[in-house]
């Protein structure tokens, strides 16, 4: 009996040893990372953030807007208070090659968008009808040529007070995009909405 107990103890020690090793090896891998306003799940390739419905009367060209070029805000259905720089970093954290393709080649990734409504997650097409959706119009990702100037929000001084970038920006960003022509199925007005986007 004593011999048997000793043997079990030995096995238990070995199991504990390997479990400890496993825990230690997992310690450095953090699948979830939280920036100030965007949560990133690297394992599931998902980002989560909050936004509000932008019910201004102007035409909408993008579904989601993150804080960046202020004049685009009016053209987006949902606006998040998270900075665009944070979104860019979040995607780079998930998959830098995908981010590189989106940013430099205007590549449109496959995305599964879910919106939390009355404690239940809905796919975006269950929340709204979209007629003219070109996947490039899902999120405004930024512009390499202008981001350096625009996204440096730390500047106390407007660096571009004297130059006329706006018409150029507008033609580059909106260009030939069609208005989204959307219709809400659920009532999201006046609520802070939680959104989850999974990149495939």
């Amino acid at each position: 009996m004593q011999y048997k107990n000793c043997r079990y103890m030995g096995i238990a020690k070995v199991i504990f040893f390997f479990a400890g090793l496993l825990l230690l090896s997992c310690k450095n891998y953090k699948p979830k990372h939280i920036f100030s306003q965007i949560e990133v799940d690297r394992f599931n390739k998902t980002i989560s953030f909050k936004a509000y419905l932008n019910d201004t009367p102007s035409e909408k060209y993008f579904i989601f807007y993150f804080q960046s070029y202020p004049w685009i805000r009016d053209y987006a259905i949902f606006c998040s208070s998270a900075p665009l720089k944070e979104l860019q970093t979040a995607l780079a954290l998930i998959d830098w090659e995908l981010w590189n393709k989106i940013y430099t080649n205007k590549f449109s990734p496959q995305m599964e968008i879910k919106i939390l409504h009355e404690n239940q997650w809905f796919l975006i097409h269950e929340i709204m009808k979209l007629k003219n959706l070109n996947t490039y119009q899902t999120i405004f990702w930024g512009l390499p040529g202008y981001d350096e100037v625009v996204l440096n929000d730390g500047y106390y001084v407007s660096r571009c007070s004297g130059c006329e970038l706006l018409p150029l920006e507008q033609s580059l960003i909106l260009g030939t995009l069609q208005p989204l022509n959307y219709k809400l199925i659920k009532n999201l007005k006046g609520k802070e909405i939680k959104i989850k986007i999974k990149f495939n």
Partner: peptide, 29 residues
Amino acid sequence: NVPGHPYESTYCPKCKKVLIKRVGYNVLE
């Protein structure tokens, strides 16, 4: 200027382990 690229991080020249893991301007490790 390529956020998330593995060569944004610092590696130990001897044991080759990641010393400082970076994504964009963020230090993760």
